[in-house]
Design a protein around this nucleic acid. Sequence first.
DNA 1: TCTGGGGTCCTAGGACCC
DNA 2: TCTGGGGTCCTAGGACCC
Length: 410
Amino acid sequence: MSGKRWVVDPTRRILLVDADAFYVAVARLVDPEGAGKAPLLIVGGSADRRGVVTSASYEARAYGVHSAMPMSRAVRLCPGATVVPVPWEACGRKSHEIKQALRQFTPAVEQASSDEFYVDLTGTERLHREPLGTTARRMRDAVARETSLTVSIGGGTSKLVAKLAAGVAKPRPGMAADGVCVVEPGREEEFMRRFALADIPFVGPKFQGRLEQLGLRTVVDVVPHDRVTLVGWLGRREGEWLYERVRGVDPAEVVPDREAKSISRDETFAADIADDAALAARLLALAGRAAGDLREAGLLARTVTVKLRDFDFTTRSAARTLPEPVHSERVVYDVSRALLAKLRRARRVPARLLGVALSNLVPAEAGTQLSLLDEAPESGLETERDRAIARVIDRVRDKYGPDALGRGGR
DNA sequence: TCTGGGGTCCTAGGACCC
DNA sequence: TCTGGGGTCCTAGGACCC
């Protein structure tokens, strides 16, 4: 920690690089003749599979379409729109390309999501002999040149300020923007005054509701109250947190190369599934995908979690932590099946979503002693035979693609 | 309107150990 | 027989992000 938790640290220089309409832009690059020529474009899951909008073109947004909206509603709001699925693989590649373009400036690049990157340029201003905004504009040009994607960049003395500044820098319908907004050190409080509390990251619907009860809707509503008052209203943790954030104070560091903490695969069914055998078949496919991706990442997992969403959207989960880390489909599936059985015993109703998550991850090199004997399915212990079968599965998928061996679960 | 898929972080309670 | 506190690990659920 910096040791300056309560005040702005004027020496920090942080950027947030955010790709403009990322999924829409990539869909257009992948399919220039179709998606590329449709001004009204919506990217996401199809309406008849209970999909949602991942991203919409600025033209489609004018009809009220926005991300996370059910696709069924989106096409009703904007009947003329072209709808295309998310090009996940191309998005992953483009995401990587953006990161590489930014790393030419500094290794201190943290990927916050597919389309957002924090960059820490603290101490480099003198090195580059240029102001932060100038570096940001050079970054924008580099990304455009090397990826054909447009990004907006916000800058300031914290991740919070950089993120909010990037929102200000975004192009708006009918309003030109140069795509860069830097808040100078000392200007944080003034900058923050324009925002609603809902604009602050991690102030979600629930927290907003509590704040509204206290008559707090905007930054300007909160600033007059001292720390003790806010702590009295919201409790120590959240009171202190809000006191700092409305002043643009955020001690979070830019952390490059974050290690994954969990790997999960889940599926919302096109129609609810009531039958246990049919659920087991989907579970087998999900366990296989999760375990395969775990091995591809060079990891082992000690905890297996099964998630079940019932027809009425009740979401339940069951987890088991094993004595030794594993990554074979055999063990992941056996443990998952026992966990699913437990959840179904508690409430046997039609299900809309099933998922498998693997956590408590350790690098595969760490190695563990394996039993040479075959284990009972419920033991949760992995044998050398399990690992050997997993290696064969990986080789087949390498050669024939991820859908070989029924990964799709059809 | 009828709600995805991938994640992270926090909390609270219970088990267990010293 | 009554009475501790601290620490760690695990499970389940929930808020939140893009």
